[in-house]
């Protein structure tokens, strides 16, 4: 190992770069998002939960339950109803991976490295969330390609259809702050997963994702009226295949704002305090 003098990029030069850059956190967040993409390229099997899993869910519900649910119309009649639902279910489920990955970063000491660097405190969290947007997007693209192949069409026009995809992506980016917070609060990745499933199942199955809410038993109907996922699914259907749109869309947007307003600050606080 040589003792050669270190490069011309001495501390003074670097400090100048850092201090004169009020938006340094943007570049830092993008760098950390890039890290997530590199990791995905390194371990493509980590994408299984946003590739095969959604397809399996779509195909399973379509062909196994399609006949029964659509009341004799067969799976072709069920597809337009089911696809928006499975989109929501898959994307919402993939958000919990964000919390698990963050928890893992903490356990392995990667985040302590970041915290010892002169970078903005929010960068590692925003970077993690942005990086995971790639996973959510993968899930959306895979499902839409499969859906189109099976004969799905945006019955309400392509513009509204794309808006629906944007909506579910934005919802995922709001909801994932809950998992970011839990990922920082809970000690182990298993703990995060345990809590997540406890919350996710009532959220997704107690909603009109797979069946009309009117077919649910009384208590589930009541729950489904409170459940934000119900409004998201309704808004998605409104945009993708037509139907009631205004109320579900507004309620969904309100939930998104609420989730960010509550959980993003909580997550940042937990990040600062975590020792």
């Amino acid at each position: 190992m040589s003792t050669a003098a270190l490069s011309p990029t001495g501390p003074a030069a670097q400090h100048a770069v850092r201090r004169n850059h009020p938006f340094a956190w943007v570049q830092q967040s993008l760098t950390l998002a890039w890290r997530n993409i590199v990791r995905i390229r390194q371990n493509p099997e980590a994408l299984a939960d946003v590739t095969f899993q959604p397809i399996i869910f779509l195909v399973l519900f379509l062909f196994v339950f399609g006949g029964a649910v659509s009341g004799g119309g067969g799976w072709r009649d069920y597809l337009p109803y089911l696809l928006p639902g499975v989109l929501v279910q898959s994307v919402v489920f993939s958000t919990l991976g964000t919390g698990v990955a963050l928890n893992d970063d903490f356990a392995k000491g990667v985040f302590d490295r970041f915290r010892s660097l002169p970078i903005a405190r929010v960068s590692p969290l925003i970077g993690a969330v942005l990086g995971d947007a790639i996973r959510y997007l993968t899930s959306i693209v895979i499902l839409m390609v499969t859906g189109f192949a099976l004969g799905f069409r945006f019955e309400n026009g392509v513009g509204y259809g794309l808006l629906a995809l944007l909506l579910v992506l934005a919802f995922a980016l709001s909801l994932c702050w809950v998992w970011v917070w839990l990922g920082l609060k809970l000690k182990t990745a298993q703990g995060v997963q345990g809590v997540a499933f406890l919350v996710m199942f009532p959220l997704t199955f107690g909603s009109p994702i797979f069946v009309q809410a009117s077919t649910l038993p009384g208590f589930l109907q009541t729950w489904s009226k409170i459940n934000p996922i119900s409004y998201l699914v309704d808004a998605m259907r409104g945009l993708m295949i037509g139907g009631d749109l205004q109320k579900p869309l507004l309620v969904t947007l309100a939930w998104m704002a609420g989730l960010i307003a509550v959980f993003a600050p909580l997550a940042i606080r937990a990040y600062r305090r975590r020792t």
């Binding site: 770069v17 340094a24 760098t31 950390l32 590199v38 392995k108 000491g109």
Partner: peptide, 25 residues
Amino acid sequence: GQYASVDEDMSGRRNLVMIGRLIGL
């Protein structure tokens, strides 16, 4: 240290480049 670790799922070079980018290089 035992903490403040590198990212095991990235190459050595990418780890170092990432830190360089983070601190403003």
